[in-house]
């Protein structure tokens, strides 16, 4: 399934393997529960940013309803566990399937439209899902919040870190692999020039729907893990401000890079946590950062890294 250069089939670069390895052994030293919690939050938001970027950075459609698909996965997983008694370990899979189905149908409806209209429609889908969740209070308990069974009996954070780390790793590798496959080539072609993609025989609607469905499936999966990690759900998980935060991380990280959003999450999630007074202004700051990134460095952190890589010859990397 490789597309181009001689080593495209290698999904992970040595550097990303190294960083992932460092991350995986970090909890062996980090004893502080609070710090672990921060790492988990970064992983959760970062992997959402990757799933978001899979659509925004590849097919150039911005899913403004992204968090609603995360939320749909979270609620589906929670309700499956609560009402059907299935294991919390399987719940997120149900969440992924539900969000993928939702993504597929809204994709079929909206993705025939050109860029901005598709984006607006995804936003409406998101708003609809949010109000549905809030108003179906017999099922979801609405804003009173739904108590969700946790994965584990323990309150210790370290096991949860490894669960979420595993999901992040799975998300990263799957998206990366798909992105560098033939299908991924079609995604990028559509995102970079719709007219040329058509003239090259790529069916835009088909591949957009495939991409959107996949992205929503991962949103749902991550939502499920979020639910059984946090233990409580309110319709707020579906709010557009969650989407904006994910969008900001993905864009600051670098559109189309996938990993950029994860790196950005590890910078900004802890940063805001330590600058508690700024927490309220979070979206304002993200907004300003987004504008700055757009003006000065549209490629985000990923572009900065590429430039560095061209200038410095790292001993363990060969270009």
């Amino acid at each position: 399934m490789s597309t181009g250069g001689s080593h495209r089939w290698v999904v992970l670069s040595p550097l990303s393997l190294f960083l992932l390895a460092v991350l995986s052994v970090l909890p062996l030293w980090v004893q502080d529960e609070y710090l672990l919690q921060l790492l988990i939050s970064s992983l959760l938001l970062g992997s959402q940013a990757m799933a978001f970027d899979f659509t925004a950075g590849f097919i150039n459609v911005i899913n403004f309803g992204f968090s609603a698909f995360v939320g749909a996965g979270a609620y589906t997983s929670a309700l499956l566990v609560l009402h059907w008694g299935i294991s919390p370990w399987l719940g997120p899979l149900g969440g992924a399937v539900a969000s993928a189905a939702l993504g597929f149908f809204s994709g079929v409806l909206t993705l025939r439209l050109q860029g901005i209209y598709a984006a607006v429609m995804t936003w409406f889908v998101g708003l609809t899902l949010l109000s549905l969740t809030a108003s179906l209070s017999g099922l979801t308990r609405g804003y009173r919040g739904l108590n969700v069974p946790l994965f584990l009996e323990t309150a210790a954070r370290r096991p949860y870190f490894y669960i979420i780390f595993g999901v992040t790793f799975l998300t990263f590798v799957s998206l990366r692999w798909t992105g560098s496959s033939r299908v991924g080539l079609a995604f990028r072609a559509i995102g970079q020039n719709l007219e040329s993609a058509r003239a090259s025989g790529v069916n835009p609607t088909k591949y957009r729907v495939i991409n959107f469905t996949l992205s929503c499936a991962f949103a749902g999966l991550l939502g499920g893990f979020y639910a059984h990690f946090l233990g409580i759900l309110t319709p707020d998980v579906m709010h557009s401000r969650q989407t904006v935060e994910v969008l900001a991380l993905a864009y600051i990280g670098g559109r189309g890079s996938l990993w950029g959003g994860l790196v950005a999450a590890f910078i900004f999630v802890p940063l805001f946590e330590y600058l508690k007074p700024l927490m309220e202004l979070r979206l304002v700051i993200y907004g300003v950062l987004l504008i700055l990134v757009m003006i000065w460095c549209p490629g985000g952190l990923a572009a900065i890294y590429t430039q560095l890589k061209q200038q410095v010859r790292w001993p363990f990397m060969q270009r």
């Binding site: 181009g4 079609a186 990028r188 020039n193 003239a199 090259s200 069916n203």
Partner: peptide, 22 residues
């Protein structure tokens, strides 16, 4: 010309080779 500007020359042509030629 409307290239896929963030792709390599080879990838540009491969899009058509993969999807245009059945």
């Amino acid at each position: 010309s409307r290239p896929f500007s963030k792709m390599t020359v080879l990838e540009n042509v491969m899009v058509a080779a993969i999807f245009g030629d059945r």
